[in-house]
C-alpha cells in the first residue's frame, strides 16, 4: 500500500468530516445571507479557538488510553489565580506564567495520582475536576473577578492578522503538536501507552514519566485556554470552562480517535472542532431558538460520534 493511500485510510474519518463541513457550509451559504462572509468565518474561528486547544490536549490524553475530565476545572482555577495575581499588582507576564505553571502542576497531580494508584483516569480526573472547581469557588466565593488590565486583554484576545490572538495561539499549538505527536519518541510512547503499556514497560521505557507528561500537557493547554476565555470575557469566574471537556471529548471521538487509545487523529480533531462550531454558528444564524439549539447540537453530535465509532470498529486493528 502506498504511503498516501495508507494516510487516506488512517484519516478517512477526518476526510469524511471535511466533506460534511463543506456540504454544511454550502447549505448555510444558500440558506442564509450572512453565513458566507469573512466576518462570520472569523467569528467561528474566534469562538472555537480555546475549544480547539482543549480538544487537541484531550486527543493526546485519549490516545494514551486515558481521559482528562478536569480540563474545564483547571481552566477555571488557573484563570482565577491569574486574575487574582493581576489584581494583587503582579505583572501581566508574571500572572500568565503563574497560570501556566498552576495548570501544569494540576495536570502533574492528576497524572501522578493515576500512575501511583493505578486507578482509572476517568475516576481520578472526575474527582479532581470537583476538587479544582471547589478551589475556584472557595477562592472567588462565587464572585467573578473583572476589569483586568488592558495589556492582558491585548495578549488574550488582541488583534493578530485581523483575528483574535486566541486563533493564532490555537493554530500555533496545533502546528507544534503535529511533529511532537507524530514524529518524536514522546508521541510514539504516548500512543503506546494506549496501545500496550505493558509492552512499553517491558521495553524499558519509564511509563510513569510519559503518563504524567500527558496530563502536564492537558493542564498546560487548559491554562492557555483559560487565558483566552478570561481575556474574551474580561472576567475570571468559577464557572468558566464548565463542561468544556465534554465538547473536547466529543470532538476527539468524532474526529476518529478511539476511546481505548493507541492512536490519535489530530487532523480529525481539528476538523471536528470546526464542524461543531459550524453547527452552533449555523443554528444561531438560522435563528433557531436557543432552547432547541442545545438539543439539535446534542443530537447531531450523537449521530456523528456513533458513525465515527462504528467506522472505527469496522477498521479496528488486532
Amino acid at each position: 500500500m502506498s504511503s498516501f493511500k495508507r494516510w487516506c485510510v488512517k484519516q478517512s474519518t477526518a476526510l469524511l468530516l471535511i466533506l460534511v463541513c463543506l456540504l454544511m457550509m454550502a447549505f448555510l451559504s444558500v440558506e442564509t445571507r450572512s453565513f458566507f462572509s469573512v466576518k462570520n468565518v472569523v467569528n467561528i474561528l474566534e469562538a472555537n479557538s480555546y475549544r480547539l486547544i482543549l480538544a487537541v490536549g484531550m486527543m493526546c490524553a485519549i490516545a494514551s488510553g486515558a481521559i482528562d475530565l478536569s480540563m474545564g476545572s483547571i481552566l477555571s482555577f488557573s484563570a482565577i489565580c491569574m486574575a487574582k495575581a493581576m489584581k494583587a499588582e503582579w505583572s501581566v507576564a508574571g500572572s500568565i506564567m503563574l497560570s501556566l505553571a498552576l495548570g501544569m502542576l494540576m495536570g502533574a497531580v492528576n497524572g501522578s495520582v493515576i500512575h501511583l494508584t493505578r486507578i482509572n483516569a476517568f475516576i481520578i480526573t472526575l474527582a479532581t475536576s470537583m476538587l479544582y472547581r471547589g478551589l475556584s469557588l472557595i477562592a472567588t466565593q462565587g464572585i467573578p473577578i473583572t476589569k483586568l488590565p488592558q495589556l492582558f486583554r491585548e495578549i488574550g484576545c488582541g488583534d493578530i492578522f485581523g483575528m483574535e490572538s486566541g486563533v493564532t495561539m490555537a493554530i500555533v499549538i496545533t502546528v507544534l503538536l503535529i511533529p511532537l505527536f507524530y514524529h518524536t519518541k514522546w508521541g510514539s510512547y504516548v500512543m503506546s501507552l494506549g496501545g500496550n503499556p505493558e509492552a512499553l514497560k517491558r521495553s524499558g521505557v519509564p511509563i510513569g514519566l510519559y503518563r504524567v507528561s500527558v496530563f502536564v500537557l492537558t493542564g498546560l493547554l487548559s491554562a492557555v485556554a483559560g487565558i483566552i476565555v478570561t481575556a474574551r470575557l474580561n472576567s475570571a469566574e468559577a464557572n468558566a470552562g464548565l463542561s468544556m471537556e465534554m465538547d473536547a471529548i466529543c470532538a476527539v471521538v468524532m474526529g476518529g480517535t478511539a476511546m481505548r487509545g493507541g492512536s490519535g487523529s489530530l487532523l480529525g480533531t481539528v476538523v471536528a472542532v470546526f464542524l461543531m462550531g459550524l453547527i452552533r454558528n449555523g443554528l444561531t444564524i438560522m435563528s433557531v431558538s436557543s432552547y432547541y439549539q442545545q438539543f439539535i447540537t446534542g443530537a447531531m453530535m450523537l449521530c456523528a460520534v456513533i458513525i465515527a465509532e462504528m467506522r472505527e470498529r469496522r477498521t479496528r486493528i488486532g
Binding site: N196, L200, S203
Partner: peptide, 15 residues
C-alpha cells in the same frame, strides 16, 4: 508484548 497499532519496525525498535 506488541503494540498492535504500531507497524513492524516501530515495534522492533520500541523503547
Amino acid at each position: 508484548s506488541l503494540d498492535n497499532y504500531k507497524n513492524s519496525f516501530e515495534n522492533i525498535f520500541l523503547g
